[in-house]
Write a protein that binds this DNA or RNA. Sequence first.
DNA 1: GCTAGCACTCATTGGCGACGAGTGCCAATT
DNA 2: AATTGGCACTCGTCGCCAATGAGTGCTAGC
Lengths: 346, 346
Amino acid sequence: MLSERQLEVVLAVVYDYIQTGEPVGSRTLSKKYLTGRSAATIRNEMSDLEELGYLVQPHTSAGRIPTSRAYRLYVDTILQRRRAPHPEAERWISDLREQRRDVEGALAYISQLLTRVTQYVSVATLAPFQEIRLLRVDFLRMDSTHALAIVVVEGGLVHHKMIAFPCEIRQEELETLSRRINAVMVRRTWNEARNDLLQYVMSELREKEGNCRAAISEMDGLLSAQPFRFYRGGAHHLLAMPDFKDLGRLHAVFSLLEEESALVELVDNCTLNGTLTVTIGEENPEERMHDCSVVLATANAGGRKAILGLIGPVRMNYESSIAVLETVLEGLREDDGSEEEQRHVH
Amino acid sequence: MLSERQLEVVLAVVYDYIQTGEPVGSRTLSKKYLTGRSAATIRNEMSDLEELGYLVQPHTSAGRIPTSRAYRLYVDTILQRRRAPHPEAERWISDLREQRRDVEGALAYISQLLTRVTQYVSVATLAPFQEIRLLRVDFLRMDSTHALAIVVVEGGLVHHKMIAFPCEIRQEELETLSRRINAVMVRRTWNEARNDLLQYVMSELREKEGNCRAAISEMDGLLSAQPFRFYRGGAHHLLAMPDFKDLGRLHAVFSLLEEESALVELVDNCTLNGTLTVTIGEENPEERMHDCSVVLATANAGGRKAILGLIGPVRMNYESSIAVLETVLEGLREDDGSEEEQRHVH
DNA sequence: GCTAGCACTCATTGGCGACGAGTGCCAATT
DNA sequence: AATTGGCACTCGTCGCCAATGAGTGCTAGC
């Protein structure tokens, strides 16, 4: 357990290092943060803290740099205390409320807002689709052997897929198919629909029509795809950061940001625990993220459950990042129950 | 006009510089490419070529580097002569034909293929939507005041938008609306539909129902949006290239790649002229692209008209980039008229 | 337990010279 | 007149060295 003063030292080191990016020495601490104590005293503390795994020095005659453990301490104290709202919070919130967009448009807008304000990388997507419910399924007949399957899910999101039937299909058949599928799929979650219901429908319909079987196996394809795209923004900001002067590290991060499947894992791992999670450097299971921190928030507004996130260097400004995310959450939350929200739900 | 030998020198410089990335000197040329002539002779030619604007030297006592003008010459000779197909061309073409995907899936697949093979940045999207025709419009009634508008365009692409009506709307009204809109919009291009027809419908319907007016103005919103997303890939490859060791240049390129509107302009400017266009460095009107070259191809297969592109450093391997793009075009062209193609068109 | 002092470490910086690749020019050659 | 060999010159790069200075660890004294 850390003493009161050790804690002070660790937090001061993190705070100063986040601002300057330079290793911080005992002198600086003594002058700027712990004016009561002399540099020598702080040197001793720092030496202890290094053994405890909170600080490291890049080389002998340099100041100390915080480890992820130190950042963790710092972030936890931030998360505990009440944060002052961002000065422009009011404006964003009203901006967000004015925007009358569909879900995709809203996510794109939010992603842009986040990256513009913070200068970090932003991601926005819909929450794990496993929990999102289907509202209805329609079939539009295109020609004698094709129909467009349209799946509407909670939050007004729509997915579609062109379905080819092995032989001709009439309008009435399509309507029957639609009624049956709706009867079993409506209000089920995406995953339920895929895992259980399609099996059930398939076995029930097996003997009847080859047409339906083919259609259903194509529907399965529709449901198995990652249904929601990621809205990313601001990746280029990383290039301007001194933390990423090393191209190798940049390469790792960028290759991950371009891999949709890696992003899915990123948000999957981080959102199980709560509403706002911070993953710092090596805490992230994905090695390519070891030089980055990820702040994720889940916006739970009515039918749509979104994940918003900011990705920056480990040395990122957690305080403002968290504040900005919370402000956006606030702006979305106020939508709840309002006219905008009810619009697409039932 | 350049002499025969001057031409040889320019092409040799470009060829060697593309391979090595180092300024190339008279000695190298004399030994590797123009074995008949001595270094001194070539020095004189190079000096002339520098005055003519084909070569520059980064500093005295360094070799020469080609200018965009020299690259242009080089690329034009490549485009004129017949190119050998890529050794793996067969496999890609059959891969492409085996893929039974919808248009979006196909674009994503092609984008990945391009970047995997070339290690450059790839883009794929649908051609200027101004020319793409609407096939039909449907309305699905969601609740008493909402309907989902579904627009199917050539190539099986689907767009949708949730439409809110100012007051309640019945199923029959929707069907009437749908019939009317279809009557005037079907087989029109995206732009025609937006500019002329909606105006017409609006004025005709003005006196009848406020409901319809509201719906149509929302439809306008649907048609005014950039309808097709860009599939990008491989941006991180740029980080590994020695040409981009300067972070400032990288920053410019990346910020452009993240701006959808900039990408739209990029492909707009380049595809007016023909089937396969190469834009080299400063030839590009967009300043941020001055360190990159862009190879664009338009795939004109049946109902779907796609734009495929590769973006690399000015020093990119044009020969293989062009060959790869042409191979992919080949793979798509063979689809034409086949079962896959007819699938979504009418 | 705290602090002042001191010796020590080590990354950074700037100056200096050697090196070498490449050029420009000129005189000699074909 | 075109080509070529020779030669002086330029200039970026590399390695070396000494000076600098920030920061530490340790110890003795308060």
